[in-house]
Simulated scan of single mutants.
Amino acid sequence: MPSQLPDISSHGIWSVSSFKQGHGVANLYDHSTTTYWQSDGAQPHWVSIKLDSRMVIHSIRLFLNIGQDENYTPCQINIRAGSSQFDVQQVHLVELEKEPRGWVEVKLSDNGAPLAAQFLLIEFPANYENGLDVHVRQIQIMGPPAAEAKFRAEKILPFTTTEFSMYDSFR
């Protein structure tokens, strides 16, 4: 699934609830769908990302493959966001209706506005066939489109029509 959105995953410090030897947190962002993070322990399993600063987040993409991972594949994804781990609020609860075999994109917004957060918590409360541990092959945190990011940085209105330019200054 090609994307015009920038991947801002590298702007964070990642941690996980648990992992099995050889299947740690670095496998979540190594750009390979052949590796995976595997949790180890009691549910819910989670991944947390503490970003460098408060950032606008357009979506989260996860690579899940039930064909390879079977009952290790999550069927629920709970996304929470905030400024730290102490004030996270639920942003989105996803119930996967179809068995995932590739990228799953979860678009995020805060009551219709783009989500801005410094801390993300991605929880996996349940798996297909009541599996206990989780396999997640990749996670990407996607920023806003380049035009929107430029607008936010420069605070310049991105309108170029004649109708708009008639009203762009005071008399």
Rank of each mutant, 00 (worst) to 15 (best):
Q4K: 09
L5Q: 07
H11K: 14
I13S: 08
I13R: 04
F19D: 11
G24A: 11
T33K: 08
Q38W: 00
Q38N: 12
S48G: 01
I49N: 01
D52Q: 13
V56W: 12
S59Q: 12
L64F: 00
N65Y: 07
I66V: 11
Q68V: 12
Q68R: 13
P74C: 02
I77Y: 00
A81C: 06
Q85F: 12
Q85T: 01
F86L: 15
F86S: 07
F86C: 03
V88K: 12
V91A: 02
V91D: 01
V94F: 05
K98F: 12
E99C: 03
P100M: 11
P100R: 11
P100G: 03
R101S: 10
R101I: 04
R101A: 12
V104Y: 00
V106E: 05
S109Y: 01
D110P: 03
A113T: 12
P114H: 13
L115Y: 08
A116N: 05
A117T: 03
Q118C: 04
L120V: 05
L120H: 04
E123S: 11
F124P: 00
V136K: 02
P144R: 05
E148M: 14
A149F: 01
A153L: 10
K155A: 13
L157W: 08
Y167I: 10
S169R: 15
R171V: 14
